[in-house]
């Protein structure tokens, strides 16, 4: 059971048949996806090979600074992806987002690898980096949703927010509903995932562990930790970032500075 079967290069090439099917479908039905499928295939192979070698190197090096350096690069890339999805030009939100992601994800990954899994040392790259990767990947999407919602609602409900300000509301009171809506929108996907896990889908991490020869009962324990971790880290990061960004939507006199659409 604990023996992992190696995939040889010819076997790997055999898997390319799936891509051939996809290419054929696109070609026959004139979907215009052939170029994207080709680029995607090349990128998948090259990016994962680079990652594989990088991880082999990092796991071998056993250096705390290298591990943390990789973590910072991962968070930095995540901010760029969030930036691509949000497309906000007026209010600067990137630096607080980066700092929040860095601190909250570090705490989450530290908590899980050190206290929950109990690995020694806490930064053991084999545990720390995949844990951080899952946290970053999931929370990044949640943050993008929350930030996007925050800005769009502030613009859409400009007049309503100003009306509340005029009646003596402080900026928090005037934007309470928008704030709640934005945080909720970010948190719902990870909560929904808790509902469907094990019924509707077998999560990637658990499947990976089982394929690699782990006992399913060990794999589910890891998966439970991961699900809880994702809900917690998503809640923490969306609340902090949304809070900071909301303040930036208002000026010194608690006036709304977000311009109309």
């Amino acid at each position: 059971m604990n023996q992992i079967i190696e995939i040889s290069i010819p076997q790997l090439l055999l898997a390319l048949l799936f891509i051939v099917v996809a290419q054929a479908t696109s070609f026959v039905h004139k979907l215009g996806l052939n170029r994207d499928i080709s680029i995607g295939t090349v990128r998948t192979v090259s990016q994962l090979f680079v990652m594989g070698y990088a991880l082999t190197f990092i796991f071998g090096a056993q250096n705390v600074w290298l591990t943390l350096g990789i973590f910072v690069v991962m968070v930095f890339s995540a901010v760029f992806i969030v930036r691509g999805r949000v497309r906000e030009k007026q209010i600067a939100y990137e630096i607080p987002t980066f700092l929040t992601m860095l601190s909250s994800y570090f705490l989450t990954a530290l908590f899980v690898s050190w206290l929950v899994i109990g690995v020694e040392p806490w930064w053991e790259p084999r545990y720390f980096i995949p844990t951080a990767g899952m946290v970053i990947g999931n929370s990044m999407s949640a943050l993008a949703i929350s930030i996007e919602r925050m800005f769009s609602q502030m613009r859409q409900q400009r007049e309503l927010v100003e009306m509340k300000l005029c009646l003596g509301a402080n900026y928090k009171e005037a934007s309470r509903d928008i704030f709640k809506g934005a945080v909720k929108a970010g948190m719902i996907p990870s909560i929904n995932a808790m509902m469907g896990v094990g019924l509707v889908f077998i999560p990637g991490m658990m499947s990976g562990q089982i394929l690699a020869g782990a006992d399913p009962l060990t794999a589910i324990r890891y998966q439970i930790v991961v699900m809880f971790m994702l809900v917690g880290s998503t809640a923490m990061s969306t609340i902090i970032v949304t809070h900071i960004i909301r303040r930036r939507c208002f000026g010194e006199s608690e006036e709304l500075v977000v311009s109309a659409e």
Partner: peptide
Amino acid sequence: TAEIPPPELRSKVTYVPQIPQMI
């Protein structure tokens, strides 16, 4: 007015916008 907390100022000098807004 720059030294008056905005909620206090706006409760005393209340602006009613052109298009009425209802919650």
